[in-house]
C-alpha cells in the first residue's frame, strides 16, 4: 500500500505529458488530420523549453515558465509544416508526419550544436518547480499524494481534459470541428471553412504537444537530448486510440500508461513483479494498444474522415 502511494506521484509525472500530447492529437484528428508527428513536435517543444530555461535560469525564477511558453510557440510553428503539407498540398498525412518526426530529431540536435556546441542543450538546475496546494495537502492519504509537491503541469493536464471536453462537445466550434473530421463535404456545404478548421486543429495539437514536450523535459530530465522524448509521442498516439478519441478516455488511458511506467521502476520492490523483466513493462502500452485496436475493430470509434484527402468535389 505504501508503495502504491509513493507510486502515484511518479505515475502522475509520467502521465502528464502523455495526456497533454494525446489531447493535442485529439484536436488534430477530430478536425480530420492524422498527426503521427506528435513525437517530433514534442521534441521541438522540449528542446525549446529546455534551451530557454537553461539560458534564462540565472536571471529569473520564472525561467521554466518562459521555457514552457516558448515550447508551446515552437510546437505551433513546427506543426504549421504538417498543416501546410496535409491541408494545402494534400500530402499523405502519415508521410508528412513521418518526415516531421525525422526532421525534429535532426533539427533539435543541430540547433544544440549551433547554440551549445554539443549534442544536447546545457543543463538547467531546477527545471519546473513542484507546487503544493495549501489546505488540501493536509487531507490524510490523498493530500500528500495529490496536493503536495505536484508539478503545475499535472494540474494543467487535468484542466485541459475538462476544457477539451467542454470545447469539443459543448461549443459550436467543437461541433464544427468534429463535422470536419467526420464528413468534411457536409461541413463545407454548411459554409464551414474546412481548411481553416483543420489548420486550427493541427495548430492546437502543435501547441499541446509543444507544451507536453516542455513539461516532460522540465520535469523528467536535466537537459534536452535526442533521447529526451523517447517515444512518448507515440505513447500519446496510443493513448488517444486507447481512449477512443474522447478527452476522459484519454485521461484514463494516460493515467494507466503513466502508472505502468511507474510500475517498471517499483517492480523490484514488489514481490510478485520482481521476476518480470523491465522491458516487458516498457512494452505494455504498445501491446495493449494493438490489442485495443483489434478489440475495437468493426466499431468505428475514430473520426471517419481522419487521414483522408479532402477533395471538395467528392460527394
Amino acid at each position: 500500500m505504501s508503495i502504491l502511494l509513493t507510486m502515484i506521484p511518479i505515475a502522475l509525472v509520467y502521465a502528464t505529458p502523455i495526456v497533454i500530447a494525446a489531447l493535442g492529437g485529439l484536436y488534430s484528428e477530430r478536425s480530420g488530420i492524422v498527426n503521427i508527428a506528435l513525437e517530433g513536435i514534442m521534441m521541438v517543444g522540449a528542446f525549446t523549453a529546455a534551451a530557454v530555461t537553461a539560458v534564462l535560469e540565472p536571471s529569473t525564477t520564472w525561467a521554466a515558465y518562459y521555457g514552457i511558453a516558448a515550447g508551446i510557440v515552437a510546437g505551433m510553428i513546427f506543426s504549421l509544416l504538417h498543416a501546410f503539407a496535409s491541408v494545402n498540398l494534400k500530402a499523405d498525412q502519415v508521410v508528412s508526419g513521418t518526415a516531421l518526426n525525422i526532421l525534429a530529431g535532426g533539427l533539435t540536435v543541430y540547433l544544440c550544436q549551433i547554440f551549445f556546441d554539443q549534442q544536447r542543450t546545457n543543463a538547467f538546475t531546477t527545471g519546473l518547480a513542484k507546487v503544493s496546494v495549501p489546505g488540501l495537502k493536509g487531507i490524510p492519504f490523498l493530500g500528500p499524494v495529490l496536493f503536495m509537491d505536484v508539478y503545475s503541469t499535472t494540474y494543467a493536464a487535468i484542466l485541459l481534459v475538462l476544457l477539451t471536453w467542454f470545447v469539443v462537445y459543448k461549443t459550436p466550434f467543437g461541433l464544427r470541428m468534429r463535422s470536419c473530421g467526420e464528413h468534411p463535404q457536409a461541413a463545407a456545404s454548411m459554409g464551414i471553412n474546412v481548411l481553416a478548421m483543420r489548420y486550427t486543429g493541427v495548430i492546437i495539437s502543435g501547441a499541446l504537444a509543444g507544451l507536453a514536450g516542455g513539461a516532460m523535459v522540465l520535469t523528467q530530465d536535466i537537459q534536452y537530448t535526442l533521447g529526451s522524448i523517447h517515444g512518448t509521442g507515440f505513447i500519446a498516439l496510443a493513448c488517444l486510440i486507447f481512449g477512443k478519441w474522447n478527452p476522459f478516455g484519454v485521461l484514463g488511458a494516460g493515467l494507466f500508461f503513466g502508472f505502468s511506467q511507474a510500475l517498471s521502476i517499483y517492480a523490484k520492490d514488489i514481490a510478485f513483479l520482481q521476476k518480470v523483466p523491465l522491458d516487458f513493462f516498457y512494452m505494455l502500452p504498445y501491446v495493449l494498444t494493438v490489442i485495443a485496436l483489434v478489440v475495437f475493430s468493426g466499431k468505428s470509434v475514430g473520426p471517419k474522415a481522419a487521414g483522408e484527402l479532402y477533395d471538395a468535389g467528392k460527394r
Partner: peptide, 27 residues
Amino acid sequence: QHFKLVHNFTVTENIILGLEPKSGLVI
C-alpha cells in the same frame, strides 16, 4: 443527391451545424 450528413450526429446537430443557437459559449 448524395446527402451531406454527419452520420453520428443527431438530426438537430446536422441542421444547426454552422449556424448554432448559443447561450453564452454553449450550443
